[in-house]
Simulated assay, not measured.
Amino acid sequence: MAADLGDLAAFASVARAGGFRDGARASGTSASGLSEAVRRLEAKLGVRLLNRTTRSVAPTEAGARLLERLTPALDEVEAALDVVNGFRDSPAGTLRLNVPVSAARLVLPRIVPPFLAAYPDIRLDVVAEDGFVDVLAAGCDAGIRYDERLAQDMIAIPIGPRVQRFATAAAPHYLDRHGRPQHPRDLLDHACLRGRFASGAMTAWEFERDGEVVRVDPGGPLIVRVGAATDLAVDAAIAGTGIITLFEDWLRPHLDSGALEPVLESWWQPFSGPFLYYPGRRYLPAPLRAFVDFIGAQRALPRLAPEGSRDAAGADRS
């Protein structure tokens, strides 16, 4: 009763993703094709593998047992095929990355063009979303996150700037009207533009100077979803609506132009930069191996940027 390998892979994609549409997105196929493959597999095996409702798709007990045994087997098949890929003159295939919106905007632009130029047979598929995800369940090969969001069983390598800072700023005409804060607690008397994560948690406003750490929770007229609507908060700050705290490099062009003025600069808190993380496998897919090697080679190059220039950074540590 040999089942088709493609049908087995289709079932695994749907079961991991929790739905045909998300499974299709993760596997790069159509939802209808996955549905037909799962029906074919169930008919072949004579047992229902997925419970389907209008709102969700979940493995049956038989499906869960099959997925448990199938996942490492499919990983081995993929690794075996990728060994052959290593004999090509140039690695080929798709590399799927799950990254914060901030990394897609401010970290990857320095990396992606030269990487794709070096590896023309690799297609890069980037999913930008904030919040921690299981990269394998999401159908991705690797992700970018900060160290506090990394799973313990993942391999992590530095990518992008190694030290970043949160910056606080406001339009000069806002500060002329309302005064310039001298201490982080002064922010409690100002209109502040806040961010909220998908989990519902508000972004932290934390400041540090000479070993003193001050955390404040100011109010204000605008709250935006971190990542997706961050530019709205930046535009509001430039318009004089209030004070914003964000990664320094997100605000840097506006600070340099004078549209925004630094606030409490001596209190800006530094933190370590992001990491590329991926599962610890004996054999990495060739596109991922090429990307890991490319990042390593970039980090080994001497910095030629003029003194005073800054690395790109993300806008939230998600």
Rank of each mutant, 00 (worst) to 15 (best):
R39E: 10
H190M: 12
A26T: 02
A233D: 05
A191C: 08
L81H: 14
A297E: 11
F115W: 03
G220Y: 03
A236V: 07
D147F: 10
D176K: 12
P114L: 00
A10F: 01
E307K: 11
A37T: 02
L188W: 06
L50A: 01
G143K: 06
I144C: 02
I243Y: 00
V292T: 11
Q152M: 12
A204G: 09
L301G: 03
P253S: 09
V47F: 03
H254P: 00
R194L: 09
A151V: 10
V127N: 11
A171H: 06
R303D: 13
S266R: 15
R317E: 12
A290L: 04
T168V: 11
L49R: 01
A17W: 04
A10N: 02
S56G: 10
G19L: 04
N85D: 15
N51E: 15
R317Y: 05
D22T: 14
I238R: 15
E208M: 14
A103H: 05
R96E: 01
F294N: 01
G200W: 01
A138Y: 11
D293T: 14
R105H: 08
G93P: 03
G273Q: 04
R40W: 02
I122G: 00
A305S: 08
A156G: 08
S318F: 06
H254N: 12
T60K: 05
V214C: 03
D311T: 12
P221F: 03
R196H: 06
V83Q: 14
A229S: 12
I159Q: 03
D7S: 09
P302A: 07
L284R: 10
A239W: 05
A17H: 06
I122A: 00
F87V: 11
D189T: 12
D293E: 15
L288I: 06
A79Y: 09
E206C: 12
V112P: 00
V38W: 01
R194T: 05
L66G: 00
T245G: 08
L5F: 08
G131E: 03
A236R: 13
D130K: 04
A138V: 03
Q298S: 09
I223A: 13
G258V: 06
R310E: 11
E212W: 09
G195L: 07
A31S: 14
H190F: 11
A313W: 10
Y119L: 04
A228C: 05
P221E: 06
V213W: 09
M154T: 14
G139R: 02
E148Y: 09
W250R: 15
A201H: 10
P72V: 08
V133C: 07
I244M: 04
A151K: 12
F132G: 12
L45H: 04
R303C: 09
A80Y: 12
A169S: 08
L66F: 00
